[in-house]
Nucleic acid binder design. Sequence first.
DNA 1: AAGCCGTGGAT
DNA 2: TATCCAAGGCT
Length: 287
Amino acid sequence: MTDDIWRLAADWFAENARDLPWRRPGTTPWGVLVSEVMSQQTPVKRVAPAWEAWLDRWPTPADLAAEPTGEAIRMWNRLGYPRRALRLHAAAVAIATDHDNQVPTTIAALEALPGIGTYTARAVAAFAHRQRHPVVDTNVRRVVARLAGRPDAGMATTPADLRAAEQLLPPGEEDAAVTSAALMEIGALICTARAPSCAECPLAAVCEWHASGEELPEGPSRKPQKYTGTDRHVRGLIMAVLREADLPVPRVSLDGVWHEAERRERALAGLVADGLVAVEDERYRLP
DNA sequence: AAGCCGTGGAT
DNA sequence: TATCCAAGGCT
């Protein structure tokens, strides 16, 4: 029974996969890596146009590595979490320098790159290099949990999650890679967090959660995060100013972003410490 | 190992 | 309007 779940997913995927730009034939491993980093906590819909512009400008890691980090941050624009742009730049430098400008093919080498963790390393290995690995993101965790009768997964990916996903994969590398993409797509389009469409789900017949009545969890599946008025908020406001600025700006130009000086100072100091902002004789700019 | 790290759309 | 959530990673 469980050994044909992958076929249900893969057959559905063949008919229903979104036409995402990085799924086009000819996409390089670098293109896949960029798409995965951009998609960390950012909806794929918003990533697509940014990905096109990025790959058009920097077709290989060496092209990006040759630029100042500030160019990556500005190009990142409003995708959010701009430290990802910084780490992607650092990853490009590492690939160009240590890997002959070729995206690594082993999980260990991928995880050694900045900004590449458990999920992204396996996603690149599977989708770029067509290897067999459990690719466990928030979508897959939810799908796997519901197949087993639970309404949702835990807060973070665990080794048990990887083992559970691995057991759904067929033995063949290419089949496994397709299955991983299919499970993610089902989670993103059908088995969604708040309004799942079980009537259209290719896995409904083998899903314990569906069989037991589709009870949605009560509280949020992740700890709710404050945002308004936090450092994160003010950091974002400061970065927005600096992205738009053509020249270094004096500190007074940043005073308008938030009314509390103390929080402004702390946010700015944090951005400088993170390497997202450079200070040049009392003026501030992207690095 | 909880908490931090942006942004915007949907409900 | 407020909350939830979206192809997570790092410390």
